[in-house]
Amino acid sequence: MHFDELIGHLGQHTVDGLSKGAIYALIALGYTLVYGVLRLINFAHSEVFMVGTFAVLILWNQLGVENNPPIGQAILFLVLGLLVAAVASGGTALALERIAYRPLRRKNAPPLIFLITAIGLSLVFVELFGQVLPKLLGGVLPAAFGRPRQIVGMPTIIEQKTLFTIGNTAITNIQLIVLIAAVAMMALLDWFINRTRYGRGVRAVAQNPETAALMGVNQERVIMLIFVLGGIMAGAAALLWSMRFGFTQNSIGFVLGLKAFTAAVLGGIGNLRGALLGGLFLGIVEVYGATLFASNWEDVIAFVVLIVVLMFRPTGLLGESLGRARA
C-alpha cells in the first residue's frame, strides 16, 4: 500500500484519472443510449471504438502525417480524424444494428440471445482486423495491417507539454484537450437529446415504445439514430485515444469496452449525464487504486467496482432511464 504516494500527489492522480475517465465516458454513452431505448447491452460496441481507431490510423498514414506537425496542420489532422472516425464508427454501429439486431428484434428473441449474438459479432470484428484484413490489405496498408494482431503505433500529432502547474500537479496540454473535447461532445449530445425534435423522439421511445409509435414516432428510425449517435461518440473517443496513447491493436476493445460498460452502469445505465459522471469517477478510482496497490492490478479494480455497484446500487449513481433524464 502506497498511501503516502497517493496523498502526496492527490491532485496529479486526480487529473490523470479525469483525462482517462473522459475516454471511458465517451464510449459509455454508446452503451447507455442503446440500453436506454432497447434495454439491451450492445456488447459489440467496444469493437465500434476499435474500428474508429483503425480509421484514424489509416487516415493519418495515407495523409503521410509526420511527428509533431505545425499547429495549423495538427488541427486539420485532428478535425479530419474526428470526421473519419465518426463515419467509420457510426457506420459500423449502424451495420451491427441492421445485420444482426433487427432480425432478432423481429423475432422477439430473449435478451440473452442478443447478448450472445453481440459477443459473436465482437469476435468477428476482432478477427477481421487481426487476421483477415492483414491478409487482404497487408500489401496495400502495411502500416496498419502489416502483421496479424500487431500493435501499431501512430504519429504524434501534439507533443505532450506541461501547460501549467498548480502546487505539485502538472496539467499537460493533451490531458486538457481530451477533457475539454470529451465534455464538449457530451454537452452536444445532451443538447441533441434534450432540445431537438429527434431527441424528443428518442426520449419518447425510451419512455414508452407503444405510445411513441401511436404518436407517430418512427421507431426503427429512432433505433438507427441511437446506434449512429453512440457510434459517433465512440469515434470521438477513438480520435482522443489515438492522440493521447498513439497506438492501436485489434484487441484493444475488450478491456476498454468492459470498463466503459462499468462506467455506464456506475453512473446509471440509460442516463447520459450518468455516463459522464461514471466515466470520470471510474477513471479516478482506477488511478487511485493503481497507485495504492500496483499498476498491474488496474484491470481488477474496474471489475471489482462493477460487481460492488451491481450488488449495492444496480441503478447506478444517478439512476436509470433515458426517458426521464429531463422531462
Partner: peptide
Amino acid sequence: ADYRWLVFGLAMVLVMILRP
C-alpha cells in the same frame, strides 16, 4: 486454423439469428 476465431464468431451470430 488461423481463422478459427472468426469462424466461431460467425457461427455464433448465424446460429443465433437463424436457429437460436
